[in-house]
């Protein structure tokens, strides 16, 4: 168990059933300390339920989970001390000022009154809300509320933040602000475990990712590993002038090592296109290009499709969506 110390969140065969319905199905997570871990999956995949088990709000039906080395069922208070949790709904006390909101939660974490004033100032500065200190909470915009929420999760200096859909429902600008804040917090040494169904969030900032579908983990690991694992071959589209050139290229490279498929695509605007599935490296791609042009064929276009997370996600979840 050499990597035990490095995992700040770990679950083993975590199961949560609501009646006959299995919301979380033998889920095993590994979140390394210091990572920004994106917990990705469509709505209803069981992300919130998993997070509620990790935050001691719901008891697992079976299986185990540890946060910071503490079992969520055996030592819930130690777990609560270690986590900052932001649920998908912003809990509104409509009758409070911004500083009172933070002061209240800091008090709930047993932070003595003399330390709270400075703490609140620091937290507000961090999330850039110092100028709204004395405003009523319900007067804040959604993005500001989300940042205030984030400040609240930091009140007791937890080592891991568990954030449920922190960017959902935000306008693009607010979403970017939250993203930047998360990166900043990771730099401060916090582990960030957040759920999302928006892939852009993940590809921009995550160091690790876990894909969940129908309560099961389908794939997880560091972003680099995931890319390599999910994207074993590249797609190259070659654009040519006429059907004859197409046939020539087909016969020319069909037998080159690493080429696993050459398919004609629908001609577009009088141009003929070929898609080459290739498993080789960059050098091989250049060699392909040289081979084609060396045969005297005019290449109108030679482009490699960079597969984005979207298609990787679609590919991985394919077949499990019912």
């Amino acid at each position: 168990m050499a990597n035990m110390a490095e995992l700040i969140i770990e679950t083993r065969d975590l199961v949560k059933k609501f009646g006959n319905f299995t919301a979380v199905d033998h889920l095993s997570l590994e979140v390394p300390a210091g990572s920004i871990y994106g917990f990705v999956g469509p709505n209803g995949a069981g992300k919130t339920t998993t997070m509620r088990m990790l935050t001691t709000l719901t008891r697992p039906t079976s299986g185990q989970a540890w946060v910071n080395g503490y079992s969520v069922t055996e030592e819930p208070r130690a777990v609560r001390r270690a986590i900052g949790y932001m649920p998908d709904e912003f809990g509104v006390y409509d009758d409070m000022r911004v500083w009172e909101y933070l002061d209240f939660f800091a008090a709930c974490y047993d932070i003595p009154e003399i330390e709270r004033k400075k703490l609140i100032d620091d937290l507000l500065a961090l999330v850039d809300l110092s100028h709204r200190r004395d405003d009523m909470v319900d007067k804040l915009s959604r993005g500001m509320k989300q940042r205030l929420s984030l400040a609240r999760t930091l009140a007791h200096d937890p080592s891991v933040l568990i954030l449920d859909e922190p960017a959902s429902g935000l306008d693009p600008r607010a979403r970017i602000e939250i993203r930047e804040l998360l990166v900043e917090l990771a730099r401060m040494g916090k582990t960030i475990f957040f759920s999302t169904h928006i892939l852009a969030d993940v590809s921009e900032i995550c160091s690790h990712i876990g894909i969940v579908e129908a309560g099961q983990i389908i794939a997880q690991g560091s972003m680099d590993d995931m890319r390599a694992q999910i994207q074993p071959h590249r797609e190259i589209t070659v654009t040519l002038r006429d059907q004859e050139a197409v046939e020539t290229v087909k016969s020319l490279i069909g037998s080159v090592e690493g080429v696993v498929g050459v398919n004609e695509m629908e001609p577009r605007a009088g141009r003929y296109r070929l898609r080459i599935d290739y498993t080789g490296d960059d050098e091989g791609v250049a060699e392909l290009n040289r081979t084609i042009s060396g045969a005297g064929i005019a290449i109108l276009g030679f482009a490699e499709e960079t597969k984005d997370l979207e298609s990787m996600f679609m590919r991985v979840t394919k077949g499990i969506v019912t």
Partner: peptide, 13 residues
């Protein structure tokens, strides 16, 4: 109902 209860329950209160 205001969804603040879960927030309180994850604190040390």
């Amino acid at each position: 109902e205001r969804q603040t209860y879960d927030l309180l329950r994850t604190t040390l209160l």
